[in-house]
């Protein structure tokens, strides 16, 4: 694997129509800078993720990890730099300037640091909303219950159950999301994201606040998502054990800049990383 973060500019063009192979670039962040007012939260950040890779972004609190995610999903718009997503069909899609729902449609799904489920709905409905975002039923079709509407309903019901099975929540399909235990809520959010059929899944601290056994389950689930659904995973995580065991590669952010990148082993020995973490009070805090 190549060094993530090296300025290998692939450009926006990718041969159209070629089948994707593991190892192709799936997302390329090119020197993005994001600032609010006078505060710069990302400074010339670059990283490259390859198809099929589990890439982790780590760094002390306030290093800009979530800002990076928000740029990748269209929530924030970086002032400088490009983000290019290469989809399965070989199209190079520029993320900057697209709205979150358009980014999702392109194939990037995400979860949130503090889970943002549709709390008054059942687990089933939560996932189904994700699945349905890829369907086409409009208001007229819905009101008249046209044949296509019914067909789509059946298809999305089936897919929703599959996904609930996949994350191990089938038994809780009819439970209200807010009533689920914490770890289950995390899994449900992943299922909802998977419902939108992503090629790249962004997980923002999926293990935050979970207990050790939930943590182990989550790690297994992430591996399963990566392997069985061949979804690339970009992960923000504070739990070093989890990161080291899951990630193929790691990018380290500090004060909005990439200070190191490489395999877990390489990163662990990087003096800049050690310093950043020793300088910070406690990386697992919050």
């Amino acid at each position: 694997m190549s060094d993530a973060g090296s300025p290998d500019d692939l450009g926006p063009v990718s041969p159209v129509g070629t089948a994707p192979r593991p190892g192709d670039v799936v997302v390329d962040v090119d020197e993005i800078t994001l600032s609010f007012g006078g505060l710069t939260s990302l400074r010339a950040v670059s990283l490259t993720q390859h198809r099929g890779e589990i890439l982790a972004v780590i760094g002390p609190n306030g290093a800009g990890k979530t800002s990076l995610f928000n740029c990748l999903t269209g929530v924030y718009r970086p002032q400088v730099g490009r983000i290019t997503f290469h989809d399965r069909r070989g199209r190079a899609i520029s993320v900057v300037g697209r709205k979150p729902n358009q980014v999702n449609r392109a194939g990037i799904a995400r979860t949130f640091q503090t889970s943002r489920l549709f709390n008054a709905l059942t687990a089933f409905e939560n996932v189904k909303i994700g699945v349905e975002s890829r369907m086409h039923t409009g208001p007229l079709g819905a009101m008249l219950r046209l044949p296509r509407t019914r067909r789509e309903e059946r298809a999305s019901d089936a897919r929703t159950l599959e996904l609930l099975d996949f994350v191990g929540l089938r038994a809780h399909a009819n439970d209200i999301a807010s009533s689920l235990p914490y770890g289950d809520r995390r899994r449900l959010e992943i299922a909802r994201a998977l419902g939108t059929g992503p090629e790249l899944l962004l997980l923002d601290e999926p293990a935050a606040g979970t207990n050790p056994s939930e943590k182990g389950d989550l790690a297994a689930l992430i591996r399963k998502v990566n392997a069985e659904l061949s979804v690339s995973v970009l992960l923000i995580e504070h739990d070093m054990g989890l990161v080291m065991s899951l990630a193929d590669n790691i990018v380290v952010l500090n004060f909005g800049q990439v200070i190191a990148s490489g395999t877990p082993a390489e990163v662990q020995q990087d003096p800049a990383v050690v310093e950043a973490y020793l300088g910070a009070p406690d990386p697992e805090d919050g």
């Binding site: 999903t73 929530v75 709205k99 979150p100 729902n101 999702n104 449609r105 799904a109 995400r110 949130f112 943002r116 489920l117 549709f118 709390n119 008054a120 709905l121 409905e125 189904k128 909303i129 994700g130 349905e132 975002s133 890829r134 369907m135 039923t137 409009g138 208001p139 819905a142 009101m143 008249l144 219950r145 509407t149 789509e152 309903e153 999305s156 909802r192 994201a193 419902g195 939108t196």
Partner: peptide, 29 residues
């Protein structure tokens, strides 16, 4: 018509927006 609408993809998208616009957007709505 409206009852069907309520229990359809469209109706659920409205619920999603009502509950959490940011999450709804990132779920592709």
């Amino acid at each position: 018509a409206f009852r069907s609408l309520e229990n359809s993809r469209v109706g659920r998208a409205w619920v999603a927006i009502r509950e959490d616009e940011v999450a709804a957007e990132s779920a592709g709505i």
